[in-house]
Amino acid sequence: MLYIKCPHCGWRSQNEFSYGGDATVKRPELGKEVSDQEWDDFVYNRKSLRGKHWELWQHLSGCRQWIKVERDTATHEIFKTLKANEEIS
């Protein structure tokens, strides 16, 4: 079970969180015309990387905040966690 540092609450076990997928996907702006390709990339197409990547988790049974987590998908090592409003660097 992973041990995740919620930027709001501190270290908590994985079972307090729910997974939310790739954190780098940006939703196209409302009302903006987007091509089929752009829309499919937003809704469906994911890289499923092996290695370091940024992902979303929600601290569901805690502060209910969505957070960004930099994790290695192969080793499960977590390098960094950010609040929702903090930019991935």
């Binding site: 729910s18 979303l56 929600q58 969505w66 929702a84």
Partner: peptide, 13 residues
Amino acid sequence: LSHLEYYLQLVWP
């Protein structure tokens, strides 16, 4: 609820 929180916190803060 999670859905609303997602959009409010991440997409349309």
